[in-house]
Simulated assay, not measured.
Amino acid sequence: MESGKQQVNGVGFFQMPLHYPRYTMKDYSDMPEWKLDRLLAEYGLSAEGDLDYKRRFAMGAFLWPDFHGVNQ
């Protein structure tokens, strides 16, 4: 069974991993496909698609917008 996914009395549920990934855009751009697959699977996300799609998906899912310089 994939990490993060569990069964209790036949009912499946997702348990969020303890740590949020702390990768930069460059890290995702250079990350090998197997590592992207593991990262996405750990969070219960689909690893379907080509390497470019997986990289863009991971960046969209895990990178927060840069709010520096925005008036508050």
Rank of each mutant, 00 (worst) to 15 (best):
F14T: 14
D52Q: 11
K26H: 08
K5Q: 15
T24F: 10
D27R: 08
Y23S: 04
N9Y: 14
N71M: 09
G4M: 01
M1T: 08
Q15A: 10
N71K: 13
K5S: 14
E2Q: 10
Y23H: 11
D52R: 13
L51I: 15
M25N: 10
S29C: 09
M31G: 11
S46C: 12
V11E: 10
F67E: 08
M16G: 00
P17T: 04
L63P: 05
M31V: 08
G10M: 02
G12C: 12
L51H: 12
M59Q: 12
T24Y: 09
P32K: 15
Q72L: 11
K5G: 00
F57E: 01
Q15K: 13
L51E: 14
V8N: 01
D50E: 11
P21K: 05
D27W: 08
R22K: 13
Y23R: 07
R22Y: 06
G12F: 12
M25F: 09
E33A: 13
Q7D: 06
E42Y: 05
E2A: 01
E42I: 02
S46L: 11
L39G: 01
L40R: 04
Q7L: 13
A47E: 13
G69Q: 10
L45K: 14
L36A: 10
F13E: 04
A47M: 10
R55A: 03
R38V: 01
R38L: 07
N71C: 09
P65C: 06
A58Y: 02
G10V: 02
L45W: 01
G49M: 04
G60H: 03
W34I: 00
G12L: 13
L51F: 02
D37I: 15
G44A: 08
G4P: 02
N71I: 07
V8Y: 04
Q7K: 09
E42P: 00
S29T: 14
Y28G: 07
V8A: 07
Y23P: 01
F67K: 11
S29Y: 05
G4R: 06
D52M: 11
Y20G: 00
S46M: 08
Q6S: 11
S29E: 13
N9H: 12
Y28F: 15
F57H: 12
G10T: 01
Q72D: 10
Q6Y: 15
M31N: 07
L45Q: 15
F14Y: 12
M25E: 15
P21Y: 04
R38C: 01
V11P: 00
E42K: 11
A61R: 08
W34Y: 15
S29W: 05
G49Y: 03
F57A: 02
P65V: 06
P65S: 06
D50I: 05
G69V: 12
W34M: 02
S46E: 12
P21L: 03
Q7P: 00
P65T: 06
M59L: 04
Y43R: 00
L39Q: 09
M59W: 04
E48D: 13
D66R: 06
